[in-house]
């Protein structure tokens, strides 16, 4: 039985290396080349995981190799530019989230949301409020009371300005009616580390990076900022259940450059949707804390508009919208 592993992995290897790769394919039929999924963050992160898992399924659905390219730098802008500027031939697509909306208002070099074409909506990524087990606070009520008592008592770890947990760190305290001391960390993993070493006591990360810690009890989730409870943490109440109307979240969607041939776009988005709904992707993504809500191009476009309308006032409020990028 173990020998079978070796053979199958040897086969997989040779396929990856391209020895058994499809060399001669009809030029006119799409897809005839490998599809490249651009991930704007370094390998190993949440988006990277989505890209690689989805890419694996997509290559089965479309019967063509799928490659993940990590095009990183400038807070995700380099990668978004790479997607927006690519030939609209259906061979370059990208994984996108809230960051791209923020950057489109903060950096004149970032593509605007009109420069990309939403293809498939993958998942919601609701915001949440976590507290370290060492802080000795178990309920949202106690937390709000402690913060009203002394706003400096507990420090919050979050992204730099424009990142998703920074947006959450603006929305959540506003909804709770408290002030929050926000300490920036470059990314989710360093924020989790700071929560564990006790440098900060709370964090406003989405669920996936703290899922294992929450299950282990080293970190306690005080509330989830979505309409329904998080499927991986069914015991954690939402903010709404606890009497605070706070709903905020990141999202994951797949976008392509503007101007794709409608037939190609249809084939591509159908393929991605099928990959996103495949059993293998669903299982792996769910166990990593993603809240899947797959939908086609129309839904993706509608969700994108909604997100832009939600995020823009927040950025404007925080003074982050760059000169010349204001909306009328």
């Amino acid at each position: 039985m173990k020998r079978r592993h070796l053979i199958s992995s040897a086969l997989a290897l040779s396929a990856a290396i391209g020895l058994a790769g499809p060399a001669a394919m009809a030029q006119d039929a799409y897809p005839a080349e490998p599809i490249h999924i651009t991930v704007v963050w370094p390998a190993g992160g949440g988006h990277d995981l989505v890209g690689r898992l989805l890419g694996n399924e997509l290559s089965k659905v479309m019967d063509t190799p799928v490659v993940v390219d990590n095009v990183t730098g400038a807070g995700g802008t380099t990668g978004m530019r790479h997607v927006a500027d690519a030939d609209p031939d259906g061979y370059t697509i990208g994984v996108m989230g809230l960051h791209a909306i923020s950057q489109s208002f903060m950096n004149a070099n970032a593509p605007t949301m009109e420069d990309v074409d939403p293809l498939v909506y993958i998942s919601d990524d609701p915001g949440a409020l976590e507290i370290s087990a060492d802080a000795g606070i178990d309920t949202l009520e106690d937390y709000v009371a402690a913060m009203k008592d002394d706003p400096m008592a507990l420090m919050n770890g979050n992204d730099p300005q424009g990142g998703n947990s920074f947006v959450f760190a603006n929305v959540i305290p506003k909804g709770l009616g408290i002030d929050m001391m926000k300490l920036p960390y470059p990314g989710h993993a360093p924020t989790v580390t700071a929560l564990l070493t006790g440098e900060v006591q709370t964090a406003t990360l989405p669920i996936p990076p703290v899922l294992e810690q929450a299950k282990a009890g080293t970190v306690k989730v005080l509330g989830v900022a979505s309409e329904e409870r998080h499927p991986q943490l069914p015991d954690v109440p939402t903010f709404k259940e606890q009497g605070y109307d706070i709903v905020t979240g990141d999202f994951v969607m797949i976008v392509g450059p503007k101007g794709m041939d409608p037939a190609v776009k249809k084939t591509l988005s159908d393929g991605i949707l099928a990959a996103a709904q495949s059993a293998a992707f669903t299982e792996a993504a769910t166990s990593n804390g993603m809240v899947l809500r797959a939908g086609g191009p129309e839904m993706a476009a509608a969700e994108l508009t909604t997100q832009v309308d939600t995020v823009y006032p927040l950025l404007l409020d925080a003074g982050l919208v760059a000169e010349g990028l204001e909306r009328e």
């Binding site: 390998a43 190993g44 299950k215 792996a284």
Partner: peptide, 21 residues
């Protein structure tokens, strides 16, 4: 670091997420 982040990503694909326990 970045390399162990990739390793962790790979483990997560296999449903093995390293955690405190």
């Amino acid at each position: 670091d970045t390399i162990t982040a990739v390793l962790m990503g790979a483990l997560m694909v296999h449903g093995l997420t390293p955690g405190p326990l």
